[in-house]
Simulated assay, not measured.
Amino acid sequence: MDSAKLPARDRILDAADRLFYGNGINATGVDAVIEEAGVARMTFYKHFGGKEGLILAYLGGRETRWQALLDQTVQDAGDDPDARLLAVFAALRTWARSLSRFRGCSFVNAMAELADAEHPARALVTSYKRGLRRTVLDLARATDAADPELLTDQLLLVYEGAISTFALGTVDDAVDRAYATARQLIAAATPTPAVA
C-alpha cells in the first residue's frame, strides 16, 4: 500500500520507526517526524500526546513485529525442541538481513539514549528483554539440556553479542556465526548417554 494512503497514525509510526532507528531517538525531533509523515502538528499530538508517547508506540511496534517473526520461525522449525530453540537465531538472522541499515537492537539503543531512569520506555525495554529471556528459557527447558538456565544465559550472551558485532561490523557474518555457535551450545548442553 502506498504510504500516502495509510491512516495518519500509521504514517507517523512509520516515519518514527525509520527516523528513530536510523538517526536515534534523541537526534530526531517531533518536527522531523511530522514532516516525514506529512501530517499536521495537531494530528500528531492527537494520536501520541507528545514524543514520549511516540517513543513507546515505536518500541511497541518493534516488539510486536519481532515477536511475530520469532513465533513464526519457531513454528516453522517443527516439533524438534533443539530446532525450535535454534529458531531464535534463525529469526535474528532474518531480521538483521531485512534491514537496509542495521543499527543494532532498537531496545538497547533506546536504553542507552534515554538517560532518565524514570522514562517509561526504560520499563518497556526491561520488560521486553525479560520476556525474551523467558521465551528462550521455555524453549531451552523443552530440550534435553542438563541445565536449561545456563544454556539460556549462554545463548542470550551470544545473541546480544551478535547484534552488537553485526551492527559494528567487527565480526564478519556475525549473525551466521552466532547461529553456528548457538547450534554448538545446544548440542553440548545435552548429556551424552553412558556407553554400557
Rank of each mutant, 00 (worst) to 15 (best):
D82R: 14
A37P: 06
G49Q: 03
K129N: 12
L124V: 08
F102P: 05
V108D: 14
D17M: 05
G50T: 02
E160C: 13
D144S: 15
K5N: 13
D10M: 06
E118W: 15
D10T: 15
R103Y: 09
A77L: 13
A188L: 13
A83Y: 02
E52K: 02
H119R: 09
G53P: 04
L13K: 03
A146S: 06
A115D: 10
I186S: 02
P191W: 01
V33F: 04
M42D: 11
D176F: 01
H47D: 01
A83C: 07
V88W: 06
M42I: 08
F20Y: 10
A123I: 05
A182L: 07
R141A: 08
A194T: 09
A8N: 07
H47M: 02
E149R: 08
T135A: 15
G29E: 00
P7W: 02
L99R: 15
V136I: 08
F166T: 12
A189G: 15
K129Q: 14
T170N: 04
I55T: 05
L86A: 05
K129S: 09
K129T: 09
Y58W: 11
I55D: 08
Q154P: 01
R93N: 10
A121E: 05
T64N: 15
G24C: 09
G61R: 09
F107D: 03
E118K: 12
T43S: 07
A40V: 06
G50F: 04
E160L: 13
V30C: 02
F166R: 15
L185H: 07
V175L: 08
C105D: 08
R18V: 13
D10F: 09
H47W: 08
T190N: 14
D80T: 09
L99K: 11
G38M: 09
V175E: 10
E160T: 11
L13R: 06
V39D: 01
F166C: 14
L155F: 04
N109A: 13
G78D: 05
G29M: 01
E52W: 00
A68M: 07
Y179A: 15
A180R: 14
N23D: 14
G104R: 06
T190E: 11
T170R: 13
V88Y: 09
R84S: 04
I12Y: 02
A83K: 11
W66A: 13
D2Y: 04
G38F: 13
E160I: 15
T135W: 06
N26C: 09
L139G: 01
R62E: 12
P191S: 01
A87Q: 05
A32N: 02
N109G: 10
D176Q: 12
I55P: 00
F102E: 07
R122P: 03
G169Q: 03
N109K: 13
V30E: 00
P193V: 11
R101D: 12
Y45I: 01
D153R: 14
S127V: 08
T43R: 00
V33K: 01
A77F: 07
A32F: 10
V158T: 05
A162E: 08
V74E: 07
E36R: 06
V158I: 10
A68D: 07
V39I: 03
F107L: 05
D138G: 10
A121N: 02
R122K: 07
Q154N: 13
I25D: 00
F89D: 03
V33D: 00
Y21R: 12
G131N: 03
R177N: 06
H47F: 08
E113T: 07
